[in-house]
Amino acid sequence: MRGRIAARVGLVLLVLFAAFPFYWAVVASFTPEATLFREPSLWPRELILDHYRALFTERDFWTPIKNSLIVALTTTVFCVTIGAFAAYALARIEFSGKRAVLAFILAVTMFPQISIVSPLYMLLRSLHLINTYPGLVLPYMTFAMPLAVWLLVGFFRQLPRDLEEAAMVDGASRWQSFVRVILPLTGPGLATTAILTFIYCWNEFLFALSFTLGPERYTVPVAIALFRGQYQVPWGQILAATVIATAPVAVVVLVFQRRIVQGLTAGAVKG
């Protein structure tokens, strides 16, 4: 009994520890700048919407949101579609070098992002893709695709092989059995993969900072980082922008949390 209480207390402390920065960001984003520095308080005493209003009047925060949505959604669509075919092949079709391909895909994710920024930059420049949407989608796919493929391989492997075989004996081609039997059953897996890919792209900072040149192509994280001017840091606005960028993602994750956890552990038990 005492152990359980101790565990509860520990859990509460852990949650407070993890959630506090976000709580503080929310509170601060509603607090006037002056109060924020003179007499900061954990409890909001005076709530204002000024920071939020300023985001959309002074700063045109819609543009980075639009950019982020376009880049993240496009990347997600490509990754899930192409990833699904690749993962199906890797999970089901026997071909030589399969293990090597899987290992290679995993190895790609091992590079620290910073190590490939310069080569990618030169590549994109020679393709005239700097400061364009494709110039972000393509590099994002280099790290989002391996994630998607690995997740989906796990989902496909969980499906009993009998189902496809039954479909094929019933008269379905491999394509028909994929579309009419496998895909409908992998729906939750595809959704999870899509959500994780989207979040990954939505939060990405380094590539977005390196491959965009002006505010017309900045994504949300880059725009927020560049709020700070030469003489002052508009903390209120930065925190308001953070809340706007984080809240939708947090809601999605909370709603789908069980599925996402399943996705991350899929294939962990069964090889």
Binding site: P160, D162, L163, E165, A166, V169, G171, L185
Partner: peptide, 20 residues
Amino acid sequence: LPPQDRDIAMVFQSYALYPH
């Protein structure tokens, strides 16, 4: 010939019914 062109039916040990 692939299975779909053989016009045979199979009952699997697991039944392999399409769950959806």
